[in-house]
């Protein structure tokens, strides 16, 4: 499970492996490939019981965590924490082009992909992707719930399935065509160097080429563009096969910079104390007084009870004497 030594501070939490891929989740695979392309060593941690979580994949870096659903996702987190930034050297026009393509991947292509994964004919493969570690009963319940949610998000009802799916696949096909033209016969999309777009496109292509779906319209569409197929297959071999990674010096993983000492780790103690001292100077007297006040009140109540009690006793005695 570990891609390098235990001392690695970076942990990638993904859904489980399958079909010859380290993670068979369409959202996790691009992040995995991004870290591979950035040649950062990391440990893998599998979270197999959260099929409905939007937080996966996530990256743990020391005490800090980058969730895919938060603040621009994992790739933005890796950039902010200065662990890896594949897009750093791009020019402004390239960045604009990159963002456009990423938006296309994350909308058109992602929607078509989700439809194909969750379509009822691909039920068996979908269960491998999302529910491999869940017990019987929960698989059925969560599968139903998730499918319903996905289809609702895509605006698909039993009546419009055919028309809507054609629309989704048409958009995906357009996207593939555009990507094919952009890639041409180069190794990567921009300047022969990997970017976040490469990770995103490779993740999608490898997923749909390798997972043996019963009905795979997208695979058919991808196979129309030979340069995309070659691109996916060659990088798939190089980045997902562990021996190939070590053989290629460009992608041999290097340890990420060690995480800075978080204020939570050591700093918290350091920061707490002065704060406490500052407060205590003004508050200590008040606290003491409050304590004395409470004790005095408590004693007063006790004394009252004692005295009242004895009075009652005396009266009783008097009555007895009479």
């Amino acid at each position: 499970m570990e891609s390098s030594g235990d001392s690695v501070d970076l942990v990638l939490v993904t859904r489980p492996a399958g079909f010859g891929m380290p993670t068979v989740c369409p959202a996790c695979l691009p992040v995995y490939l991004y870290l591979r392309l950035a040649a950062v060593s990391f440990r893998e941690q599998v979270s197999a019981v959260e099929p409905d979580s939007v937080d996966l994949p996530c990256v743990e870096y020391g005490e800090n965590v980058g969730f895919s659903s938060e603040n621009g996702g994992v790739i933005e987190f890796l950039r902010k924490e200065k662990i890896a930034d594949l897009d750093a050297d791009l020019s402004d026009s390239e960045k604009a082009e990159l963002e456009t393509c990423k938006a296309m991947m994350e909308s058109w292509v992602a929607d078509a992909s989700a439809f194909e994964v969750w379509t009822r004919d691909n039920d068996r493969q979908c269960k491998v992707v999302y529910f491999s570690e869940l017990p019987w009963g929960l698989v059925q319940a969560l599968d139903w719930k998730q499918r319903l949610a996905v289809m609702q998000r895509l605006g698909i009802t039993p009546e419009n399935t055919v028309a809507r799916s054609e629309e989704l696949f048409r958009k995906a096909s357009n996207a593939y065509s555009a990507l094919s033209v952009l890639l041409s016969d180069r190794k990567f999309f921009f300047n022969n160097r990997p970017t976040s777009l490469d990770a995103l496109v490779l993740g999608h292509l490898i997923f749909h080429l390798r997972v043996p779906f019963e009905i795979s319209t997208l695979k058919g569409e991808i196979l129309k563009y030979q340069n995309l197929v070659d691109y996916a297959e060659s990088w798939g071999k190089q980045l997902l096969d562990k021996q190939a990674i070590l053989a290629n010096p460009a992608f041999r993983p290097k340890a990420p910079p060690s995480p800075p000492l978080r204020p939570t780790k050591l700093g918290s103690n350091e920061r707490e104390e002065p704060a406490k001292k500052a407060r205590s100077e003004s508050d200590i007297l008040l606290k003491k007084r409050a304590k004395y006040f409470l004790i005095a009140q408590f004693l007063a109540v006790l004394m009252y009870i004692f005295i009242a009690g004895y009075e009652v006793d005396d009266e009783d005695l008097d009555v007895d004497d009479d």
Partner: peptide
């Protein structure tokens, strides 16, 4: 019992994060 553990605040520690998800 079907249990579903979630961390809506996203502030859980690592050990708690490992426990999140569905179980029967």
């Amino acid at each position: 019992t079907w249990r579903d553990l979630k961390d809506p605040s996203r502030s859980a520690s690592k050990s708690v994060r490992r426990q999140l998800g569905h179980s029967l």
